[in-house]
């Protein structure tokens, strides 16, 4: 589903964010990307959703060979199949919870008639349907992250990328977020979660890929 072959990412200032990464993620897997700040976790996720391009090597995501010549339309199609969750949630503060998810579905062209059902289902999965008319600033950090997850899964992605989704959240909230991500994975979605919190990863009984200074240190449980 996701294949990195000798992928490196070197920025213009000669900083090597990723070096010779070889990684293969199968459909339906749950993979933790663990490493300290600056290890290259976010860059690796960025390459998957075409937020940036690799400097060298081969990268293939859902049979899309990712390279500079990928057209805008191809990137759009790829991103519609990927859900992304960020540490800073990236919610629209002037729209309600419902409108945040509705907005995502409208911009990717989902038929309006289907939207209420999809939004309700996504909010029920994260247990926050009762917050649908709240604005993001009226919610706790954990709740905002759950809304961001609901938004990501509303479009039924094949891959869910979560970049430090528990980074700004307390332990209880983090546990809930993790449970939700595991549920999503249980239903068939491939999940890649980047975290600096190795304890969360180690207690989850899932595949762990360790990164440090842009290099892949280990790949296993």
């Amino acid at each position: 589903m996701i294949v990195f072959e000798h992928v490196s990412k070197i920025f213009k200032n000669n900083w090597t964010a990723l070096y010779d990464i070889n990684l293969n993620v199968n459909k339906g897997e749950f993979v933790f990307l663990v490493g300290p700040t600056g290890a290259g976790k976010s860059t690796l996720l960025k390459l998957i959703y075409c937020g940036d391009s690799a400097s060298s090597g081969k990268l293939n995501v859902m049979s899309y060979p990712l390279h500079d010549s990928l057209s805008d339309a191809q990137i759009t199609q790829l991103r519609r199949k990927i859900g992304i969750v960020f540490q800073d949630f990236k919610l629209l503060l002037d729209r309600t919870v419902y409108e945040n998810i509705e907005f995502t579905l409208r911009v990717i062209g989902i038929r309006p008639l289907l939207i209420p059902e999809i939004v309700t289902s996504a909010l029920n999965k994260v247990g926050l349907y009762n917050r649908k008319d709240f604005y993001p600033y009226q919610l706790s950090g954990g709740e905002q992250q759950k809304i961001a997850i609901a938004r990501a899964i509303a479009k039924n992605p094949e891959i869910l990328l979560a970049d430090e989704p528990t980074g700004n959240i307390d332990y209880k909230g983090s546990t809930e977020i993790l449970r939700i991500l595991k549920d999503i994975n249980f239903n068939g979605t491939t999940v890649l979660m980047a975290t600096h919190d190795h304890i969360i990863a180690e207690t989850s009984n899932k595949r762990i890929v360790r990164l440090e200074n842009g290099k892949l240190l280990s790949d296993g449980d």
């Binding site: 805008d72 990236k90 911009v107």
Partner: peptide, 17 residues
């Protein structure tokens, strides 16, 4: 800017943006 970023990340087409 934030809205546009989100639109792009979720897979909105250029026309939609």
């Amino acid at each position: 800017a934030r809205e546009i970023e989100i639109m792009k990340l979720v897979g909105a087409s250029n026309t939609m943006v």
